[in-house]
Simulated assay, not measured.
Amino acid sequence: MAETIQSVDRALEVLIYLEAADQETSITKMASDMGVYKSTIYRTLATLEARGFVRKNPDTDRYWLGNRLFSLGKSVENHLGIQEVVRPSARKLYEAYHETVNVAILERDHDEVYRSVIVLKEEGGHQMLTVNLPVGASVECHSTSGGKCLLAFGRNIDLSVYEKRPLHAYTDRTITSATELRAELEQVRRQGYAMDRDEMEHGLTCIGVPILREDGTALAAISLSGPTSRMLSGDLDERVEAVKRIAREIAARF
């Protein structure tokens, strides 16, 4: 067996443990489960937190994986060509309607706000609206169709965060209360898709559908976005079904 560095090995064990736990976890529980002194776990987490590999919830003093791992994961994803698995379906949806198609995943930032991060985009060369976020950009989930899907179908979502801080209003149509958001997400779960009507930008309407894992939770979300005048021109139901069909097609590949 090759010689290993104990401190590095311990840090990797902590990351693997948190990934398997799939939720924020206390130092006490980690130490107990891993059979390690609390002081050792504390020092390991402090080092990982300083580098962005884990994050601490200031309200609960519990830890989970940090945003730095997303950057590393994206590098691996690009190398392995996972985006190219999704791209043909996203391109198919774009070619059917010639509206912008985004695929996004869920992220929680350092302020504990849930954000929708764009990992793939299909679009034409001409954009009429001002909101045209590039791959890697993120926006608060409550204001977008894809973000709503990620919240409605996400794992271990803590909606109480929206009771502790105001929801940013991008337009006068944006959801700004936790009560309204909860009701909206319940409707998203019932119908299997979400809408954003002028909530991010006036004149922009989006249809979002979750890309589901086998357990029914969202791996990602796909959305079709365009000028409200076109998106609501009479074939909305057809567009919704088209996005749902593409989401199922993508999910079948994972």
Score class of each variant (00 low, 15 high):
Leu65Cys: 06
Thr40Leu: 06
Arg68Gly: 01
Ser39Gly: 05
Arg43Phe: 03
Tyr63His: 14
Tyr63Cys: 09
Val54Tyr: 04
Gly66Leu: 05
Ala50Met: 09
Phe53Leu: 14
Trp64Val: 07
Arg43Glu: 10
Leu72Ile: 13
Lys56Asn: 12
Leu72Ser: 07
Ala46Lys: 15
Asn67Ile: 14
Tyr63Met: 09
Ala50Arg: 14
Ile41Thr: 02
Trp64Pro: 00
Leu72Asn: 04
Thr47Val: 06
Arg43Asp: 10
Gly66Trp: 05
Phe70Ala: 04
Ala46Glu: 15
Ile41Ser: 01
Phe53Pro: 01
Tyr42His: 12
Arg62His: 12
Ile41Glu: 00
Leu48Phe: 08
Thr44Asp: 14
Ile41Asp: 00
Ser71Cys: 01
Asp59Pro: 03
Pro58Gly: 08
Trp64Asp: 13
Asn57Phe: 04
Asp59Glu: 15
Gly66Thr: 12
Asp61Ile: 02
Lys38Leu: 02
Tyr37Ile: 00
Ser39Asn: 02
Gly52Pro: 03
Arg55Gly: 03
Ala46Pro: 03
Thr60Arg: 13
Tyr63Gln: 08
Leu72Trp: 05
Leu72Glu: 13
Thr44Ala: 11
Gly66Gln: 04
Phe53His: 07
Gly73Met: 07
Gly73Leu: 08
Ala50Pro: 03
Trp64Gly: 09
Arg68His: 09
Ser39Tyr: 07
Asn67Arg: 15
Pro58Lys: 08
Ala46Thr: 14
Gly73Ala: 14
Phe53Gly: 01
Thr44Gly: 12
Leu45Asn: 06
Thr44Asn: 13
Leu45Tyr: 07
Tyr63Ile: 09
Ser71His: 13
Arg55Tyr: 08
Asp61Glu: 15
Val54Thr: 15
Leu48Ala: 08
Pro58Asp: 12
Arg62Cys: 14
Tyr37Lys: 09
Asn67Gln: 11
Tyr42Pro: 00
Asn57Ser: 12
Ala46Val: 13
Arg62Thr: 15
